[in-house]
Design a protein around this nucleic acid. Structure first.
Lengths: 130, 130
DNA sequence: AAATTAACTTGCAAAAAGCAACTATTTCGA
DNA sequence: TCGAAATAGTTGCTTTTTGCAAGTTAATTT
């Protein structure tokens, strides 16, 4: 488990992954705009570390070549169950968290199905459907 | 989710909780002796933070009043599913991790049952059975 | 009563985080 | 086509956190 902690055992790494998984984010500027206000040098550093850990990949965004599209590898996608459990725990103990009752109900009713559904959306490089 | 990250989003906090959950540890010196070699001031600090977050509680160990027994609150116990998912992920990607095949099989076969079993062992203040 | 053991605390050097400003590309618009 | 804007970083600097070694306090143990 200390392997896992070395790779994403810090405040920011999991938040970046959360942004990809739950908020559909793909771009540097999108990660910057999340409410936790990550500094650009830290974001840059974490992206680098997550990439070299094989959790994240980037590619140039052809429609706008000054940007990069970030997506999760399979190794990253396999973190979804971890995120889901953290969400469930947070839903129970964080009064600030605006988690949808639908999400909670979906988890309770069919955890595996929900995870499969979230994962399906995350196939690396797949363009976002909006 | 940033609530969760603020409380245990660092390398050491989850390792302490892991030690309690999976290695049955209860004492300061036991946490110190884990292979990751946490420094005593950091351990002290993390215990304090986890206690004020309501995840951990301590009580004086009556058999030896210079020691404290640490155990998880319900809030801490509810992190077990998170730990289990991290274990599963680590089992897949960390070649160093000596996870027992029994554990993996138990998770696959009956995840809820395994979690319930682990949780049952963790009732706060319950003395360790050895 | 002296020596041990446990749980911290303190002091200090090194590493990491956070902030603001800067740079290199790419694109967009006059 | 040239200048402005936007994006993904980098740089420099200060503050905070970590990590290590040694010290302290209180409870056993001998």
């Amino acid at each position: 488990m200390s392997y896992a902690m070395d790779l994403f055992g810090d405040k920011w790494s999991l938040l970046i992954i959360r942004d990809i998984v739950f908020y559909d984010k793909q771009f540097f500027k999108e990660f910057r705009s999340s409410k936790e206000k990550i500094a650009s040098n830290i974001l840059s550093d974490r992206i680098k570390k997550l990439e070299s850990a094989g959790i994240l990949v980037s590619e140039i965004y052809e429609k706008q070549r000054s940007q990069k599209v970030y997506s999760l590898t399979q190794k990253g996608i396999d973190l979804v169950p971890v995120l889901v459990e953290i969400m469930i725990w947070s839903a129970k103990y964080d009064n600030e968290l605006a988690i949808t009752p639908e999400f909670l109900q979906a988890v309770e009713h069919d955890r595996e199905g929900l995870i499969a559904k979230i994962k399906a959306k995350l196939i690396a490089g797949e363009p976002r459907t909006e």
